[in-house]
Amino acid sequence: MSLATPVLEGNRLALARLLTQIENDTEAGRVALNELYPYTGKAHLVGVTGAPGTGKSSLVNQLARYYRHPPETETALKIGIVAVDPSSPFTGGAILGDRVRMRDLAGDPGVFIRSMASRGSLGGLATTTASIVQVMDAAGFEMILIETVGAGQAEVEIARLAHTTLVIEAPGLGDDIQAIKAGILEIADILVINKADRPGVENAERALRGNLELAHPSKRLINMYSETAHHAAPTVASQHFQGENSELIWSPPILKTIATEGVGIAEVGLEILRHYQYLVDSGELKRREKARLSAELDLLLQATLVQRWRDSIPDNRYQHVLGQIVERKLSPWQAVQRLLSQST
């Protein structure tokens, strides 16, 4: 039987086992992914990134609780959580410790938590994280919270994968806020200053606000999605966003939380939903989706074409040209010209 069927039926063990297949990039896993693909695209993907120890896992725990027990007017969402931690570059092993902060979610059948190791990938996610998220999406989780490694560098990959990206800061990480340098503000849809019980919150907020003014949001959209951002004027004017004829532009809010005590969580929870609404109303959701899928398709095409071409020529021809590059007789670009003209 296909691995996909029981997953669609809500079998948690089948889901867990399929996730392992996906992580190990097996043939059975790929087949199941193909079968599940038509069922994907429904979940709201929320990225949570920020330097180590800022409180990402604690916040994910609280947000999941919030959406599981929302205020009376809202319905509870089924929540999937994917938490990525770094693999050791030396042994390939990893300690995945994010669940320690998520014990409040134990025993809730509407929550599914999966830890994964980055397995050598450097962008804050593992190479299979997107596929893991897809499977959870198909399995019916309505919101998927994705916690990145949090290496403190620009973890841009999460912004590509997630619809809504939260950047978590905490006071006292240094005199100023460290992660600001890494251009991380540019990927933030929502900024959270966690550990607001700690001294230095005001400084942190001031620093963030100052830097945000530099990273103008409209610039940001055009930079990230340059091909598509020009011709797709926002069609729906939403009452959430400023006056009548101003463009639909999202300016990232700065929110303060104390994740360990659940303070400020509802505000973040609401803001995440409001951002999704903005993405829908502005047409940005469709644009981002298309840009992401286009990039994914291009990557797959490249890999497949290269493989097909390599299989079609004798290896010694390739090795010969490679040797000439090593000896500086051909530049890589000349080598490509040579290889491609010879093979026709």
Binding site: S87, S88, T91, G93, A94, I95, L96, R99, S115, A117
Partner: peptide, 12 residues
């Protein structure tokens, strides 16, 4: 276990 190359989920 990690140092031997395994992936270890630690739950506290």
């Amino acid at each position: 276990l990690r140092d031997s190359g395994m992936e270890v989920i630690y739950t506290g």
